[in-house]
């Protein structure tokens, strides 16, 4: 192993291209990098790492309820095993994200999950069936938000019930 690890190379490259990411790129362990990006820059940074840095796999998109804001983490991976986690936050009253389906058609399911479970709005996502909640799920109910609790009784919401044994 050389003195400069592959992780540090990625860190340097990223901060060189986006000075605003200075100190925002964190190496947690071998092959795991985390970067927090503002919601204004996430589209650019995402496009840059996918196009120029060979992050050719989108492992998943995680949605988070961070209290005042909603967070989204794009888990991107490279064929050599490097994983870059780009996270961003958007305000809860206007939780707008740009769809990444142009880069990764498979992101469709992950983005629909963000919409259904956390109430994100995803711009540029084509029409299609919802996922994973049932079609008769009441509007405005987002099960993964921290303030959401399962309604007591069965009914249309039963699928979102907290009891995994149902």
């Amino acid at each position: 192993m050389s003195d400069i690890t592959q992780e540090q190379v990625i860190q340097t490259e990223l901060t060189a291209a986006y000075p605003c990411l200075q100190d925002k790129v964190r190496i947690q362990r071998a092959r795991r990098l985390y970067a927090a990006v503002s919601k204004e820059r996430i589209g650019e940074v995402f496009a840059f790492v996918v196009r120029n840095m060979d992050f050719s796999m989108l492992c998943a998109i995680t949605g988070l309820d961070e209290g005042e804001t909603l967070g989204a983490i794009y888990h991107l991976a490279r064929p050599d095993g490097m994983v870059l986690n780009l996270s961003t936050s958007v305000p809860k009253d206007r939780p707008m994200l740009r769809s990444v389906t142009v880069f990764f058609p498979a992101a469709d399911a992950y983005e629909r999950e963000l919409i259904d479970l956390l109430g994100f709005q995803v711009e540029g996502l084509g029409p299609g069936p919802r996922y994973p909640l049932p079609d008769n799920w009441p509007a405005g109910q987002y099960p993964l938000r921290k303030d959401w609790t399962a309604p007591d009784q069965a009914g249309p919401q039963r699928e979102g019930s907290e009891n995994p044994d149902v």
Partner: peptide, 30 residues
């Protein structure tokens, strides 16, 4: 072909948040 998933959604991710780590482990296994 139109694909509609989600019939098996059991809310496990949400359920983990209200369980301890060790309980979540056994839930995740399922």
């Amino acid at each position: 072909v139109g694909v509609r998933l989600g019939y098996n959604h059991r809310g496990i991710e949400k359920a983990c948040e209200s369980r301890s780590f060790i309980q979540s482990l056994y839930l995740i296994e399922r």
